[in-house]
Design a protein around this nucleic acid. Structure first.
Lengths: 159, 159
DNA sequence: TCTGAAAGGGTTGATGG
DNA sequence: CCATCAACCCTTTCAGA
C-alpha cells in the first residue's frame, strides 16, 4: 500500500482529487463525465489514487450544532516536564477524550494546542477539569471560538 | 431545506451518521446491512438526514504531504482597531487565501486564530508576508505544528 | 415504516484500438 | 492509456403489509 508513483499526477488526476474532495459521494459515471473520460479509466485512476495514498479516506461532514457539539474552543497546554515519558503519557490519554477533535504538538511558546467541541459552557467546564488533570499538565489557556470565518477548506489541488 | 425533525433521531439514524462519517463512500446496500435494514428505508433515512441538515456534505480526505501542503501552523492575529469595518474587510480578504484552511474568531486574548497549510518554511515566509499586510492586522504570533497527535476526529454520535 | 420485487442505471473487468 | 461492451450488482421506486 501507499505506493510511490508520486510524481505522475496529470491534470486529470488533480481534477479527480478536486472533485472528490468537494463531493466524495459522486458516482463514478458522473465523475468520469466531469473529467472527460469513460467510466473504466476513471475508476482505475480513482483506485490508483486511493492505493497510492493520495486519497486517505472518504467521510460525511456532519452538522455539529444539530448533534450537540455546536461550540468549540482551542486550548493551549503546557506540560511541566518536557521528558519523553510525560509527553507520551499525555498523548496517550488526550486522544481518548471524545471532545478533543484535534491535538497538535507545536513550537513557539507552549507544548500542545487542542481543539475541543462541546455543547455548552457547562460541558466545557467539566471538560477543562478533565484536561487539567491529564499527566504532566501545568498550564492551560482557553480561546473560545465565537465565529467560524472559514472551515475545513480542502487542499488546493488545482492552483 | 434544513427542515427540523430535530428531535427524531433514533439509534439507527445515529448509526448511519457514524458509519457515513467514517466511510462516506460506502454503498447504500452495504450501509443497510450494517444497520440491519433493507435498502429502501436505509436510503430514505440517509436522504432525510441530508435534507434536514445533519449531513452537510461528503468529501475525500486527501494526503496533504503528497500534495505539497505537508506543513501546518497556527497564527494568532490581533487587529489594530476593533471596528466592524476593519473586521469585515479582514474576513473578506483572509478567506480568499488558499493556504488558510481555517479562520476562527476567538475570545480570550487576540482576535483571530488561523490555521495555515504550506509546503515548506520558504512558502511560510511568503505567506506570513501576505497575512501581515491584510487590512487591520497589528500583531501576529505563529505556532508551527511539529506533530499531529490527533486529527479530524469526527463528531461522537454514538457516545 | 418496513419488506420485497422490478426497472433502470452504475460498476467493473475483458477486449481491442 | 483509452473506449466499448456485457454481465452483474446496486439504486430507486412503488405496492402491499
Amino acid at each position: 500500500m501507499t505506493n510511490d508513483k508520486t510524481k505522475n499526477l496529470d491534470r486529470i488526476d488533480l481534477t479527480i482529487l478536486d472533485v472528490l474532495q468537494k463531493d466524495g459521494r459522486i458516482s463514478n459515471s458522473e465523475l468520469s463525465k466531469r473529467v472527460n473520460l469513460s467510466a473504466s479509466p476513471c475508476l482505475e485512476r480513482v483506485r490508483r489514487l486511493e492505493q497510492c495514498g493520495y486519497i486517505e479516506r472518504y467521510g460525511a461532514f456532519l452538522n455539529a450544532s444539530k448533534l450537540k457539539y455546536g461550540m468549540s474552543a482551542f486550548i493551549q497546554v503546557t506540560l511541566d516536564r518536557t521528558t519523553a515519558d510525560v509527553f507520551n503519557e499525555f498523548r496517550k490519554q488526550v486522544i481518548t477524550i471524545k471532545e478533543v477533535s484535534e491535538c497538535h504538538m507545536v513550537a513557539g511558546g507552549f507544548d500542545y494546542l487542542l481543539k475541543l467541541r462541546f455543547e455548552n459552557m457547562e460541558a466545557y467546564r467539566v471538560l477543562l477539569g478533565v484536561i487539567v488533570e491529564l499527566p504532566g499538565v501545568s498550564q492551560t489557556h482557553t480561546y473560545v471560538v465565537i465565529d467560524h470565518v472559514k472551515r475545513h477548506s480542502g487542499i488546493p489541488v488545482l492552483e
